[in-house]
């Protein structure tokens, strides 16, 4: 079973993403902030979903950290934002995929599936 770590400051989003992904046979962990080093070590996710704007934190900073760390740089990173214009900056920070909020669930699952099969 593939493991996915979802990071978003909105609890409802985390909840629904967890449900949907679990429905589709993924194992899911969530975090409301960027303090994820413990989870990374213990959970060893196959994919990370990351919101661009977290409360008090910029998701792109987290993305850069992940992509500059040998341990995590190969983990597919999908960034999500309500700002469609964040697309470019997210990719520049190292995101492999970008999904605009609100998203169609089917589209979301498609992207996740595609990235995990790589």
């Amino acid at each position: 079973m593939k493991k996915i770590l979802a990071i978003d400051d909105d609890e409802a989003i985390l909840e629904v993403v967890k449900f949907i992904l679990e429905e589709n046979d993924y194992e899911v962990r969530t975090s409301e902030n960027g303090r994820i080093s413990g989870i990374l070590d213990e959970f060893e996710p196959d994919m990370i979903l990351l919101d661009v704007l977290l409360s008090g934190e910029d998701g792109r900073d987290i993305a850069r950290r992940l992509k500059s760390d040998k341990k995590t740089k190969n983990i597919p990173l999908v960034m999500i934002s309500a700002h469609p214009s964040a697309n470019v900056s997210a990719k520049a920070a190292g995101a492999d995929e970008f999904i605009a909020k609100p998203f169609e669930i089917d589209h979301f699952l498609e992207v996740v599936d595609k990235r995990l099969r790589h």
């Binding site: 309500a82 609100p102 669930i105």
Partner: peptide, 9 residues
């Protein structure tokens, strides 16, 4: 948009 995303989910 954020709450709508979760509602849609």
């Amino acid at each position: 948009k954020t709450p709508i995303t979760s509602i849609k989910g």
